[in-house]
């Protein structure tokens, strides 16, 4: 519950900050909206301090793994190429999966890599590197 409160409070501050820096013309909408959001945030947060339980439990390792996999994809696609990035992302994303063992993860990575290569590179002819650029 504190999480929502802190989250909304931080958010409002950020919004105010951005709002006041804008010139009247283009900034009009963001300022009005920022103020509105801050107000609504308080309206939600204040009563929520006294109650408990609207929050669902966080799945921290799961969240980190999935977000890290997406992050790797964003950073690696250009440099490392489609194949390595896909395989890497699959391995990272599958880390928190309940089943132990490495064999199924490697098989899964291989299947998905081939599948994405077929669908996106061959099927849709998207232009992107498949392998890293080796000099020479």
């Amino acid at each position: 519950m504190t999480a929502i409160g802190a989250f909304v409070a931080l958010y409002s501050v950020a919004q105010y900050d951005i709002g006041s820096l804008r010139r009247m013309g283009p900034g009009f909408f963001p300022v009005v909206l920022g103020a509105l959001l801050a107000g609504l945030g308080l309206m939600i947060a204040l009563p929520a301090w006294h109650r408990a339980g609207e929050m669902r439990p966080f799945d921290v390792p799961q969240a980190l793994a999935v977000l890290a996999a997406i992050g790797l994809f964003g950073l690696g696609l250009q440099g490392l190429g489609l194949a390595l990035t896909t395989a890497g992302a699959v391995l990272i994303a599958s880390l928190p999966a309940p089943r132990r063992g490495w064999r199924w993860r490697l098989i899964l990575a291989a299947i998905i890599t081939v599948l994405t290569w077929l669908v996106f590179k061959q099927g849709l002819q998207m232009t992107m590197p498949v392998w890293p650029d080796f000099p020479g």
Binding site: Q125, P129, V130, W131, D133, F134, G136
Partner: peptide, 12 residues
């Protein structure tokens, strides 16, 4: 051409 691109890309 696409095939060629892959081959050249891998230095062949």
């Amino acid at each position: 051409l696409a095939l060629g691109a892959v081959m050249i890309g891998t230095g062949m």
